[in-house]
Design a protein around this nucleic acid. Sequence first.
DNA 1: CAACATATCAAACGCTTGTTTGAAAGTAAA
DNA 2: TTTACTTTCAAACAAGCGTTTGATATGTTG
Lengths: 216, 216
Amino acid sequence: MTVLSSSDQTRVRLLEAAREVFSQCGFQGATVREICRRADANVAAVNYHFGSKDGLLAEALNFSALKALQSANIAADHCPEMRLRLFIKSFMLLLLDENGASRQCQMMAREMADPTPALDKIVSEAIAPLHEFLAKLIREIIGAGADEAEVRRCVYSLIGQCVFYRNSHPVLQRLRPELRYDEQEIEAIAVHIADFTLAALRIKKPAGNVSVVEQL
Amino acid sequence: MTVLSSSDQTRVRLLEAAREVFSQCGFQGATVREICRRADANVAAVNYHFGSKDGLLAEALNFSALKALQSANIAADHCPEMRLRLFIKSFMLLLLDENGASRQCQMMAREMADPTPALDKIVSEAIAPLHEFLAKLIREIIGAGADEAEVRRCVYSLIGQCVFYRNSHPVLQRLRPELRYDEQEIEAIAVHIADFTLAALRIKKPAGNVSVVEQL
DNA sequence: CAACATATCAAACGCTTGTTTGAAAGTAAA
DNA sequence: TTTACTTTCAAACAAGCGTTTGATATGTTG
């Protein structure tokens, strides 16, 4: 068992607080003072431990949850359609879980709209692999002969549907104040996106015909 | 012919510059000084003419283009499916046109991610009507008996696909540096989203069966 | 213990932000 | 021209930002 030194304790508290504030307010909106307040640390602590606000963001970013999701999905012994369903379900849980054990995806979703100094790292280390993973999965569904641009746009259609619920949360909250992202709601959303996407992908298959079995 | 007084000239220059900067940088990122610089006006001009930065945003917002799009669509003498195609095409033009005669939609797209004091107005005057318009159109396509929650999620799927290209532009630019939103690209995107969405909607029809004719 | 490196802290720094001020310039009617 | 009102402007203001500083604790090592 490794023991945390006093400085390490402050570090992890800062990182945790940073993920909280960054995911809620975005990089611009978040202030070093607010992060330090939640971490019960002095204002100077951020620059002492991470050099700068940028450095804190870079270290706060962590794509392990997203990568684990993909690894588990590849390892799963299911047909491509079912693997797409599983991906969407777990991806939406990462994006919408309000208890937020994993705020990393929410931070990423924020970065997408407002570029920050860390966007390059996010794109190359997390988003690009994610897109490739989905492109491969979609290609398994619609057939290997599919046009590259078409596959890419299908990936965009899928991701667009998913991140919409996170990016437009302030809007949706105003449209339907009773909205809560509990487990049932997230499940229902995931099922809808999966049904919607699979139906759209089905007619992209080269043959273009739909078996009755697949529709059930 | 109405003549603009000197003060009116400054007003319109400020509004134009504000739409430019707000749509590019967001409300938080935009600075009064930058807006005034582009409008060739003094820093104090914003507060003199609009009271505050918030007031400038409120007056800069203008939903006429979005409303005109919906009116024209309702008036068009086409089947629901074709009207959906037309909507997507013109909506994507509003969202992606880089020459940006109409930056209003781009401003709205920005507000969705980062709530500002003006979001309530945007939601009630522009977004809510847009969602209702789309819900009605989708109901015409999949049949009146459709579940309300299901229709709503279809609307989200459609809008999510559309705004993705705008909200994630910084990311897509890094993934594919050669990307340009010229007229051909926008047309191709619109066709994809329409095909994708109509295919997904088709299996939501009560009967659940797909005629061969519709697939062509 | 003494000596050293590490970590914390209150305070301040330099800068940018939105906003205000009071004087100057412009405009229009009497 | 005089008067009254509107619009512009340079300058400053107060507040918030990320960051730095130098002193003070804290912990570790010889």
